[in-house]
Write a protein that binds this DNA or RNA. Structure first.
Lengths: 193, 193
DNA sequence: CATTTTGTATACCGAACGGTATATTAATCT
DNA sequence: AGATTAATATACCGTTCGGTATACAAAATG
């Protein structure tokens, strides 16, 4: 691993553990066994480092989501697929996933929030469109595509959040496909089924 | 408003806007038109201020939740009531509500996270118990009380989050009871109803 | 081999950080 | 009225913050 990637990895670990604001540039370079000018050489600033980290890690996930949301399969199939992709993204790097969520919930004026926001807006819009395309077929949607999109993303996330609260360190192994299906079903048909 | 309450109000506004870590003690006292020793006189430390803020604002909400969760009404009624209480809490002070959520999603090592955690644990446990009491009557719960509690809280929150994303400044007025009922229904019976 | 580019380190900047020793004023109690 | 306590301010502490001017080494390029 080159020093650029090393710095991003160390930064991610620290941002996850202590929060973006609470982590100093000094701390990052110390963990990487380097010095500050090296970090500034690659990223220009602390926020530049975060932005590059987001770009390299989030883009692929977002691409997969867009692809699944555009697919012409029926809504149930689409939601299953979206659930799968999201879980895979979570499994790939739980720390990064939880860092994203933390940043999404941080204050509006915060630079870090502004850095992640565009990615989530795009993610959200993609899923709104999936519901939108379905609106003709589903009678009772009544313009609630936005609510459903937020609700769906939230439901998936709640499940992953519960997983992670129970077992942050991946001890219990990967999440099975049927578990995801069960969560998506819960969203579609409620808990009383 | 006395200076103690004034400091808490100013701190809340700043913590909401910029995040706990990003706000300096200096900034808080400046907004309040006071000086640092006054803040330290009342709260002892920056984290002491946050803790007192949580105590004075969260306790009443938590009490109402516990009461509703203990009630012997059927689960649907209980969930409606919990939805109502949560929305009222949100409406009472949207900034405070969103600050809570931001703190809940901040890093584990963060003092601020550790300050809010106990409140959410209690909140969560209360709702688990409401489902638990229902487990005998509902056949298909199969030990998923915890998942339902998280899911329910998450669903309510997603709705409030959407409200707030759309209109952070309360321009569109209060949330109606039927809207809450609709969200709770979505949780119970899914989106296909 | 000489030169430029890329990468890394030493040493420093001013500003802001959380927190405090001490003094002073305002209110309360005896 | 005098003593005590509660509430607030001035001025400062050492530390850490994000960021940089400068120098030097290694590697690529001519």
């Amino acid at each position: 691993m080159n020093n650029k990637a090393l710095l991003m990895e160390c930064a991610k670990e620290l941002f996850y553990a202590k929060g973006y604001d609470a982590v100093g540039v000094q701390e990052i370079v110390e963990r990487a066994g380097l010095t500050k000018p090296t970090l500034y050489y690659y990223f220009g600033s602390k926020i530049g480092l975060l932005r590059m980290l987001l770009e390299t890690r989030f883009e692929r996930y977002l691409f997969q989501v867009k692809e699944a949301a555009r697919a012409e399969s029926d809504i149930r199939e689409t939601l299953y697929r979206l659930g799968e992709i999201s879980c895979a993204f979570y499994e790939e790097d739980r720390q990064f996933y939880m860092l994203m969520m933390a940043l999404l919930y941080s204050a509006r004026e915060n630079e870090a929030y502004q850095a992640v926001r565009p990615y989530f807006v795009e993610l959200y819009e993609s899923i709104v469109q999936a519901f939108e395309r379905e609106a003709g077929k589903l009678g009772n949607m009544r313009g609630r595509q936005r609510q459903f999109a937020i609700g769906f993303l939230g439901t998936i996330h709640q499940y992953l959040f519960l997983q992670w609260e129970t077992d942050p360190e991946e001890a219990s192994g990967r999440i099975g496909g049927e578990q995801i299906a069960s969560v998506v079903d819960q969203f579609m048909y409620g808990i009383f089924t």
